[in-house]
């Protein structure tokens, strides 16, 4: 079985900007994959190279085993891309846009699938509205719909939830999850790290065009983030305790691996005679992983 996406040693330079620097990445069929990184990291450039919108200077990219240059027809038929920019054709209605997009992929009898997409994205009532008349969030939905008209096995969404309300986020992810369960490979970029943490089973982090972390979400959380007991105390902590924690904004944070350590910690604090004003348990989260990975020196390909 060929990989859904295989990216090998791909580099791309725009003038003096090295947008992609020898990127290696493989996404297996059926995965829900997250591509994360700060603004300008190269996420969109990588997606564009995959979609044939940008030509890589070197390296090779395949979609379901089809080279995006040499075998571009097959590669593009297998790929659906939701672009980051909110673009639309003001000449057409929603349904016309979707029918035309189907036609570009050589599909003419697509009405039942179009209806299904419209229904699933909450667009059914807007089917005959002109694109110009839609709100930003509605246009975003159409953009997602357009990427799906040809039932691509690999779906790439470039920040699909930017500027989108809670309701659409939930509808959208529910639909995308169903597609994933039905066997579609999903690749997602987002700046909402909670979203990525909940959805993606594996994550790559990009920084200045390089892959600086690549692992399952669970492993990343384990490696870079921990549980922590966070508390505010009346009065200063003794040095012996402060050594084990870190203070910021009046909150002390004590990392721990197992919950039995919480008891010991609390006992030590009580023994030191400190009063606890506020207390919570911080779970490992992707945001912390992200911050740590981005602060750290580039470590090349993690594996």
């Amino acid at each position: 079985m060929s990989a859904a996406i295989r990216i090998q040693q791909v580099s791309k330079r725009f003038g003096s900007t090295q947008a992609l620097d020898r990127v290696d990445l493989e996404v297996q069929q059926g995965e829900f994959f997250g591509l994360l990184g700060p603004n300008g990291a190269g996420k969109t450039t990588l997606i564009s190279a995959l979609a044939g919108l940008v030509r890589a200077d070197s390296g090779s990219l395949t979609v379901m085993g089809h080279d995006v240059q040499g075998d571009y027809r097959a590669a593009r038929r297998h790929l659906g891309v939701v672009p980051q920019e909110l673009v639309f054709d003001p000449f057409f209605t929603v349904r016309e846009s979707l029918k035309i997009q189907s036609g570009y992929f050589g599909i003419s009898d697509n009405d039942s699938w179009i209806d299904e997409i419209l229904e699933n994205l909450g667009l059914a009532s807007k089917a005959n509205a002109n694109m110009r008349m839609l709100s930003g969030g509605m246009k975003r939905r159409v953009l997602v719909a357009q990427a799906l008209v040809h039932r691509p096995p690999v779906i790439v969404l470039d920040e699909p939830t930017a500027g989108v309300d809670v309701e659409l986020r939930q509808t959208l992810w529910a639909f995308i999850r169903r597609l994933n369960e039905a066997g579609h490979t999903i690749v997602l970029t987002t700046h909402y790290l909670e979203e990525a943490e909940n959805l993606c089973t594996r994550i790559a982090m990009l920084k200045a065009g390089r892959v600086v972390a690549l692992d399952t979400t669970a492993n990343l959380l384990r490696r870079f983030s921990v549980h922590a007991l966070r508390l505010r105390t009346g009065g200063a902590l003794p040095a012996e305790l402060a050594r084990d924690g870190a203070e910021s904004g009046g909150w002390w944070s004590f990392p721990f691996d197992g919950f039995d350590q919480v008891e010991t910690l609390l006992a030590r604090i009580r023994a030191a005679g400190c009063r606890i004003d506020d207390l919570e348990i911080g779970k490992p989260d992707l945001e912390e992983v992200f911050v740590r990975v981005m602060q750290g020196p580039p470590q090349g390909q993690a594996n």
Binding site: A51, G52, L53, Y72, R73, A74, R76, R77, L79, V81, P83, E85, V87, F88, D89, P90, I100, Q101, Y104, F105, G106, Q146, H150
Partner: peptide
């Protein structure tokens, strides 16, 4: 128009030679 508005991608993404 397609370039300025960006909707040229709709034509560039499909398998059109």
């Amino acid at each position: 128009q397609s370039k300025v508005t960006g909707n040229i991608v709709f034509v560039l993404l499909p398998p059109i030679s």
